[in-house]
Design a protein around this nucleic acid. Structure first.
Length: 670
RNA sequence: GCCAACCUAGCUCAGGGGUAGAGCAGCGGUUUCGUAAACCGCAGGUCGUGGGUUCAAAUCCCAUGGUUGGCUCCA
């Protein structure tokens, strides 16, 4: 017997008068990470509470997590009641809700099943049943779940370390109670699960591995109140209204076609924005001393053998076949097998390097090849070579998504070849460049992540030390805060990731800078130092916006289709009040165009109200009403969004729009 | 690739074994108009594709292509 029987968190809080119905758990100062939050049913030594705590209320982020995890239990209960024979596996809370993975022999769940499950869940919630926590001996738990036929749970229990504390959670009326092996925390009673919605079904695999049995995952979300759930659903609506695929269609920016799956066609308006983005980046490049190069699309796979892509990236590449390649059927068959082989032999790599051409999935191999094209001097370094080359990557059918995940795209890609001692300065300079560009696009909330050496890596530890230090020093010396992501670096070097928050609070990774000492070595890159000795350069891979296709999607959603004047495909639309002023409107249009303003006009017989409505739909930044008054005074009645700016002379309109249409520039530093 | 749902006019969608529908957009005409939808008319579809069941298929079944939401969050 425990000599000092512990009291539950509920009893301890009650004794302190800190318990009220909105409290679902406590967060202990004495514990770290996910173990810090314990529910009210958990026995605690009084000393732990004395070490400091705060209560977790049902409407806090941590409280929601508890509610969602408990809701997952209730869902599993409902599923097992409705579909006997279904086995449970894992059912965690997620960022936006929860899921539970089931093994339903010979069956799947449809969306109609979700309604039934939801109804059953409401019954369970309405029963206002308390959650009970019970400590259990390891072997007892294994025996219990073996009897229940819960083979996945048993497998999981057996894999846990010997000293793990085993607990089970139960809810439901005696006789039909539902039990799960779980470490909690859970809400005190099902009645706290006030607002529940099941959202989706999906296939998944036991422990996320395709070789394991297929499971059925049911997604849902839960909130502490119906109102909070409604707000969340409304937010989903908002995101839907901004969906770049919807806006892309409505605003005639881009289109997709089955003849080139997951490969966007940019329509004239979209292409204007896309090119304008690239022109802006080029403008920045000039000031940051980048040199743009243009490199081939299709290479002998020799290049990708050297870079390592053939061994590690072959299944994501496209291959270019010429008629001549097919002349020898037997050879072609060998090539086929080599491409498909998961682990390629040296012989197979040789064969592919000799016989096959590959479409580039990345620019770096070509850039290395070009660097080694002639002897390089230390005087040339750092060499910053930028490339807007088109890349092709074969993404699996299920993962493509609008412009955000495509099979052909281009990046604002560049590689910086430099001496090791130049690394830090280059990273500092790149950070300044990022500040300027992200500011220009209106992304002000930028978070930086430093990803350090992973377990599996290439290169000496001394190189890793230097590279990580350069990244970290560059951040510290310029006073930037960052999060450390230990072990998340690429196998060839550490990196910084730049994440921005968009207008509706979603976070996107855009830029990155990666230190690479692997590829220069593979390509045998050298430069001659000031003593005439050969040295190996360091290579920095870096992108600002990343994939321009993906950035287009992120930015389109960020601005909700309302592009700023400097990017908008048309900056102003002239709206005639009647046909009588069409001649003047055409003159005004020609004048604006001659001043470099991107202008269009609506000469249709619609009434002004309809023209405004249509033009607002197309999100032109400026509208210019042209009527008899304006024709008489050679003016335009300018309107920006809903603001009527009044009549302005043609010259003033042109000057105003031209000024606003210039590339954004960072304020001059003193 | 795997799980689920969807695919009907340029767009958004209705119809769900018995002659293919609406609104918007388009085209023609009338109206010449002052800040978020003037009016009348016309045209537009082998219902993603291919098979099958049936007297009869957009509708039911099978296959196939495409699209959408998922397939990282660990008891």
């Amino acid at each position: 017997m425990d000599p000092s029987p512990k009291k539950t968190a509920r009893e301890l809080l009650e004794a302190q008068g800190k318990l009220d119905p909105s409290v679902v758990a406590v967060k202990l100062a004495s514990r770290r990470g996910s173990d810090a939050v314990v529910d009210l049913m958990t026995p605690l030594p009084e000393t732990e509470l004395a070490a400091g705590f705060h209560v977790v209320r049902k409407d806090s982020p941590e409280g929601l997590e508890v509610i969602r995890h408990s809701t997952a239990h209730v869902m599993a209960d409902a599923v097992q009641k409705l579909f006997p024979g279904t086995k449970v596996t894992f059912g965690p809370a997620t960022d936006n809700g929860f899921y539970y993975d089931f093994d339903r022999p010979g069956g799947t769940f449809s969306e109609e099943d979700l309604e039934r499950i939801e109804a059953k869940m409401r019954e369970i919630v309405a029963s206002k049943s308390p959650f009970r926590r019970e400590a259990i001996a390891r072997q007892d738990a294994i025996d219990l779940f073996t009897r229940m036929g819960e083979t996945y749970k048993v497998e999981w229990m057996r894999s846990l370390p010997e000293d793990t504390e085993f607990t089970v959670y139960k809810h439901g009326a005696p006789g039909q109670e539902w039990v799960d092996f779980c470490k909690g925390p859970h809400v005190p009673s099902t009645e706290l699960l006030a607002a529940v919605k099941l959202t989706a079904v999906s296939g998944t695999y036991w422990r996320g591995d395709e070789r394991n049995p297929q499971l059925q995952r049911i997604y849902g979300t839960a909130f502490h109140s119906e109102k909070a759930l409604a707000a969340y659903l409304k937010q989903l609506e908002e995101a839907k209204a901004r969906d770049h695929r919807k806006l892309g269609k409505e605003l005639e920016l881009f289109a997709f076609d089955g003849t080139a799956v997951a490969s966007p066609f940019f329509l004239p308006r979209g292409a204007k924005i896309y090119n304008r983005m690239i022109d802006y980046i080029r403008d920045v490049y000039v000031r940051y001393r980048y040199e743009e190069i243009i490199t081939p699309q299709v290479y002998s796979t020799e290049l990708f053998k050297t870079s390592g892509h053939l061994a590690n990236y072959a299944e994501s590449m496209y291959y270019a076949i010429a008629a001549d390649d097919l002349a020898d059927g037997a050879k072609f068959e060998k090539v086929r097998q080599a491409i498909l082989a998961p682990d390629k032999s040296e012989e197979q790599l040789e064969l592919l390097a000799r016989e096959v051409r590959g479409v580039k999935p990345m620019n770096c191999p070509g850039h290395c090849q070009l660097f080694s094209h002639r002897k390089r001097s230390y005087r040339e370094l750092p060499w910053r070579c930028a490339d807007f080359g088109r890349l092709h990557r074969y993404e699996r059918g299920g993962v493509v998504h609008g412009l955000a995940r495509v099979r052909t795209f281009c990046q604002d890609d560049a590689h910086i070849f430099c001496a090791p001692e130049q690394m830090e300065q280059e990273i500092v300079s790149f950070n300044a460049l990022l500040d300027e560009v992200y500011g220009a696009f209106g992304f002000t909330d930028v978070r930086i992540k430093l990803a350090t050496r992973p377990e599996r890596r290439v290169g000496a530890d001394s190189l890793w030390d230097a590279a990580e230090k350069a990244l970290e020093d560059a951040l510290r010396n310029t006073g930037r805060s960052f999060d450390l992501a230990e072990g998340e670096g690429a196998f060839y070097g550490p990196k910084l990731e730049f994440h921005v928050k968009d207008a509706i609070g979603r976070s996107w990774q855009l830029g990155t800078i990666q230190v690479d000492f692997n590829m220069p070595a593979r390509f045998g890159l050298k430069y001659v130092d000031h003593e005439g000795k050969d040295q190996t350069p360091v290579m920095l891979h870096r992108a600002i916006l990343g994939s321009l296709e993906r950035f287009f999607a992120v930015y389109l959603e960020h601005v909700g289709g309302n592009f700023p004047v400097w990017l908008a495909p048309e900056q102003v639309c002239l709206l005639t009040v009647s046909e009588k002023v069409e001649d003047y409107a055409r003159e005004a249009l020609a004048y604006l165009e001659s001043r470099g303003v991107r202008a269009v006009a609506d000469f249709s017989p619609d009434k002004l109200g309809a023209k405004i409505r249509n033009a607002r739909g197309m999100r032109y930044p400026y509208l210019a009403v042209v009527g008899a008054k304006e024709a008489e005074t050679r003016a335009l009645a300018l309107r920006r969004g809903n603001d009527d700016l009044g009549a302005m002379s043609l010259e003033d309109v042109a000057a105003r729009i031209a000024a606003e249409g210039a590339f954004p520039r960072a304020p001059e530093k003193k």
